[in-house]
Design a protein around this nucleic acid. Structure first.
Lengths: 201, 201
DNA sequence: CGTCGCATTGATATCGCTCAAATCCGGTGG
DNA sequence: CCACCGGATTTGAGCGATATCAATGCGACG
């Protein structure tokens, strides 16, 4: 890619500064005043808090194509740490410039609202899914929310192992669950394509 | 309450129309063109899809103080059903007026962006929490994300049973977990006040 | 009082996690 | 071409945490 800034809206790209993080490097830390919003071009950034006893609690994993620290814009300071899980390439947009851009450009604000709305929709669905009790339920929920194309099929991007992590399951459990659902006809698999089956239950 | 509209921003309240739903009544159905955004004053509205075989999958439960169908503004038509889980009181804001208001009033747009940002933050935290393995972990995470005031205490709004639902646990499990954590000193309880304990583990 | 819902504790069953091992597959280097 | 390696995929076995079923106390409320 010639310029990573091409990945975002041109009206914001003007204010964006490319930034690279090595594994375990921090974009910011809890308590620092919120100076910027970030966009993940490549890699993964974990937003986490460190408890009194040193345990790390992950609030969110930001992956390529996602923004993070959007909310920090309005709260004054970062309320968690942002650390690269692996080498990452980011775009950093100063908070002041970001706010100015939104204020000046109504169309941009509208686009940003749209983006936030969709992200919220996705996050709510994920939260609802993670609260489900059974592995099979979660798979069905995933298919219902990510299904597209004929028969609501899903083209898997990564490995089944990745999907297991996304669903909050051990990968062995996912394999077994899928096998069972296949046998009962409630899902169908063709390579990296998953689709809800036609047979009842 | 004299007027439920007092609960939302006055600039939106002007366009809001109060609406009551009986249990099992629909606010809208999947496929209808998106004509309005909603705010829950009282009750609960479930956003769900119905699969080919009649199984209902809940995408999100909208509770008092929450908006829903914000994203529908940008997608043309509703992509799921909205049905009252119990009698509910809503505010309905026509999509066109909502969009106009955002477009005309930059300050309102900014406030709306702020609101969405916060909700997004909250939804992500909930998703991450539900993915945690143990009951104790979830309680700690909840305290970490909702903690405020001295010692990061949390004032519970509803019952412990509600909290259990929020955490995705059976209520019995929550009671037992809290009792254990209390005994080990990792949380303290005073009525409806929960706070992380000082003792290690 | 009677009823209802929350809080609490006990007993039991079940589901999913963990540990373990075999197979498969793509890539890499000789 | 072949040997080797690492990671994904599968399947098995056993254990433990959590859901579920059950029973009781308690306070609010009509």
């Amino acid at each position: 890619m010639s310029d990573a800034r091409a990945a975002i809206d041109p009206r914001l790209a003007a204010a964006a500064r490319p930034r690279r993080l090595a594994r375990r490097e921090y974009a910011f830390r809890q308590g620092e005043s919120a100076r910027a919003v970030f966009f993940v071009v490549e890699g993964e950034v974990q937003l986490c808090r460190v408890g009194r006893r040193g345990e790390r609690i992950i609030l969110h994993r930001a992956r390529p194509g996602e923004w993070f620290a959007e909310a920090a814009l309005w709260s004054g300071c970062y309320h968690c740490d942002a650390v690269a899980a692996r080498a990452a390439q980011l775009l950093e947009i100063p908070a002041a410039k970001f706010r100015d851009a939104l204020r000046r450009d109504a169309a941009l604000a509208e686009r940003w609202i749209e983006l936030l709305s969709r992200q919220l929709q996705g996050a709510r669905a994920r939260a609802e899914r993670a609260a489900l009790s059974g592995a099979e339920e979660r798979v069905r929920h995933y298919l219902a929310t990510h299904g597209a194309g004929p028969g609501g099929a899903v083209e898997l991007r990564g490995s089944l192992k990745d999907l297991a992590a996304e669903l909050g399951l051990a990968h062995e459990t996912l394999y077994r669950t899928l096998a069972r659902m296949q046998k009962s006809g409630s899902v169908e698999r063709e390579g990296k394509r998953l689709s809800p089956g036609r047979r009842v239950r």
